[in-house]
C-alpha cells in the first residue's frame, strides 16, 4: 500500500516541515500538530548543512535543527514514531543526495520502508537517478519529480515518463519562500505537464496564505499545493515562543485546509 496512490483528485494539501526544528523534542510536537489535521501529504525535510536550493527561512530551520547535532538516524526515527498515527496521510521525505549517500542507500531504504511513501531528492537530476529509482521502486517508495518553469517540453517528457505519486511544480523561478506567483505561467505549465502525466500536479514554492491556496485552485489547473516556508516563518514571526508557535501553526493549517 502506498498512500500516494490514493490521493484525492483535487485540492491536495501538502505540508512541509524540517525535521528537528526548532529542537528534536519540539519537532515531535510540531509534526503531531500537523498530523492531527490529517493533511493529504506531510513532507519531512532532512536538515542539510548546505541547502543550496532552499531560501533563507528553510536554511535557518536547517541551521537550528543541526545546532543540536541532529543525526539522520534521529530524523528517520522521528518519522517512524509519527507513522503510528499516519492514517491516510502520505509521508514524503525531502532531502539532499549527500544525506542519503552518506547514510547508505540500502540502510536508508530499510529505515523508511513501509513508512514513507515518497522521496524528493532535490539535487538528484533525472540524468543521475537510475540506480536510486530502481531500489526505491522495489520497496514501493515513489521518487517524486520536480519540474521548473525552465524545464522545456522535451525534457519534461523524459522526466515525467513513468512518474508516480505526484509532480512537484516549482511555481516561481526561484528558491523556496520566494514572493511572486505568476498564475498565468503556472496554469500554462501545469496544463502542459498534465498532458504528459496522469499523476496529480502540486504547486510549491512561494505559497504563503489562504488566499494563495484558493487562487491556485481557482486560477490554475493544479491539483493541490505545497506549503513549507510559510509554516516555518510563523516561528520567527512570534519571536520563537514555542507554545505560541504551536497555536499559530494550528490556526494557519485550519485556514489553508480549504
Amino acid at each position: 500500500m502506498n498512500n500516494l496512490d490514493s490521493l484525492p483528485k483535487k485540492k491536495i494539501l501538502s505540508l512541509f516541515m524540517t525535521c528537528g526544528f526548532p529542537t528534536l523534542n519540539q519537532s515531535k510536537k510540531v509534526f503531531s500538530e500537523m498530523l492531527s489535521h490529517q493533511p493529504d501529504i506531510i513532507e519531512f525535510g532532512l536538515p542539510f548543512s548546505d541547502p543550496m536550493a532552499d531560501g533563507p527561512i528553510i536554511q535557518e530551520a536547517n541551521k537550528l535543527a543541526l545546532r543540536s547535532k541532529l543525526s539522520t538516524q534521529q530524523s528517520l526515527n522521528l518519522i517512524k514514531e509519527l507513522s503510528k498515527s499516519k492514517n491516510n496521510t502520505s509521508f514524503v521525505i525531502m532531502c539532499y543526495l549527500n544525506t542519503v549517500r552518506k547514510f547508505g542507500l540500502n540502510k536508508f531504504i530499510k529505515n523508511i520502508k513501509s513508512i514513507v511513501d515518497g522521496i524528493i531528492i532535490v539535487d538528484l537530476p533525472f540524468e543521475e537517478e537510475d540506480a536510486i529509482k530502481k531500489s526505491l521502486s522495489k520497496n514501493n517508495i515513489h521518487l517524486i519529480k520536480l519540474i521548473s518553469p525552465m524545464t522545456n517540453e522535451k525534457r519534461s517528457q523524459k522526466l515525467l515518463k513513468n512518474s508516480k505519486g505526484f509532480i512537484y511544480y516549482i511555481s516561481a523561478t526561484g528558491i523556496t519562500g520566494s514572493n511572486k506567483l505568476d498564475y498565468k505561467e503556472i496554469n500554462k505549465n501545469v496544463k502542459s505537464i498534465k498532458k504528459m502525466s496522469s499523476v496529480p500536479v502540486l504547486v510549491g514554492f512561494g505559497i504563503k496564505s489562504k488566499k494563495d491556496v484558493i487562487d491556485i485552485s481557482k486560477k490554475t489547473n493544479a491539483d493541490g499545493v505545497i506549503i513549507g516556508s510559510a509554516l516555518i516563518q510563523k516561528y520567527f514571526d512570534i519571536k520563537m515562543d514555542f507554545n505560541k508557535y504551536l497555536k499559530s501553526l494550528k490556526k494557519f493549517i485550519q485556514e489553508v485546509k480549504v
Binding site: D123, E128, K145, S148, M150, N152, R155
Partner: peptide, 12 residues
C-alpha cells in the same frame, strides 16, 4: 564530477 543540482538549474 557530474551535475547534482535542482531542476531549476539543470536546464541552465
Amino acid at each position: 564530477g557530474g551535475m547534482y543540482v535542482s531542476e531549476t538549474l539543470m536546464p541552465l
